Amino acid sequence: MSMLTWDEKYSVEIAEIDRQHQKLFGLLDELYEAMQDGQAAEVVGKVLDRVIDYTVYHFAYEEKLMRDAGYPDDAAHRAEHVELADQAKELARRLQARQGTCRWPR
């Protein structure tokens, strides 16, 4: 069962950004399903790493578009990205600390 389902109401009407958002929905669903299935922390951690890696890529892409377009709320939106990325990395740190490995530095 999916946690997230893409809907056109989420569209920003920029095809590449919408495609990346759809990919993030898929990765988050994969993470949710792994957690729901009670898969080992190692499996969940690997999926979470993929979510974080793609999120970092997506945020950089989106931020470049905003800068290039002169988006007026660019700084506030970047701050939201930093906060979300930090939250995801903290979750990964806590999960990986239980495994004795930690990929994400403080």
Score class of each variant (00 low, 15 high):
residue 3 M to C: 13
residue 5 T to H: 10
residue 5 T to G: 07
residue 7 D to G: 15
residue 8 E to W: 12
residue 8 E to L: 11
residue 9 K to S: 14
residue 10 Y to L: 14
residue 11 S to M: 06
residue 12 V to R: 05
residue 13 E to D: 13
residue 13 E to P: 05
residue 13 E to C: 12
residue 15 A to H: 03
residue 15 A to M: 04
residue 16 E to D: 11
residue 17 I to A: 04
residue 18 D to E: 03
residue 19 R to Y: 15
residue 21 H to Q: 12
residue 21 H to M: 08
residue 21 H to W: 06
residue 22 Q to K: 15
residue 22 Q to C: 05
residue 23 K to I: 08
residue 25 F to N: 01
residue 26 G to T: 04
residue 26 G to E: 06
residue 28 L to R: 01
residue 28 L to D: 00
residue 30 E to R: 05
residue 31 L to H: 07
residue 34 A to S: 14
residue 34 A to L: 11
residue 35 M to K: 14
residue 36 Q to E: 15
residue 38 G to D: 09
residue 39 Q to M: 15
residue 40 A to W: 02
residue 42 E to F: 04
residue 42 E to V: 10
residue 44 V to C: 08
residue 48 L to A: 12
residue 50 R to K: 14
residue 51 V to E: 04
residue 52 I to W: 06
residue 53 D to H: 12
residue 55 T to P: 08
residue 55 T to I: 02
residue 57 Y to N: 13
residue 60 A to V: 14
residue 61 Y to C: 06
residue 63 E to K: 07
residue 68 D to I: 05
residue 68 D to E: 13
residue 70 G to F: 02
residue 70 G to W: 03
residue 71 Y to C: 07
residue 71 Y to Q: 07
residue 71 Y to M: 04
residue 71 Y to E: 06
residue 72 P to S: 01
residue 72 P to W: 00
residue 76 A to M: 09
residue 76 A to G: 09
residue 77 H to V: 00
residue 78 R to T: 12
residue 80 E to L: 05
residue 82 V to C: 09
residue 82 V to E: 10
residue 83 E to P: 00
residue 84 L to K: 14
residue 85 A to F: 03
residue 87 Q to W: 13
residue 88 A to C: 06
residue 89 K to D: 01
residue 89 K to G: 02
residue 89 K to S: 01
residue 90 E to L: 12
residue 90 E to M: 11
residue 91 L to T: 12
residue 92 A to Y: 09
residue 95 L to E: 01
residue 95 L to R: 08
residue 95 L to A: 01
residue 96 Q to Y: 10
residue 97 A to S: 08
residue 102 C to A: 07
residue 103 R to V: 08
residue 104 W to G: 03
residue 105 P to L: 07
residue 106 R to L: 15
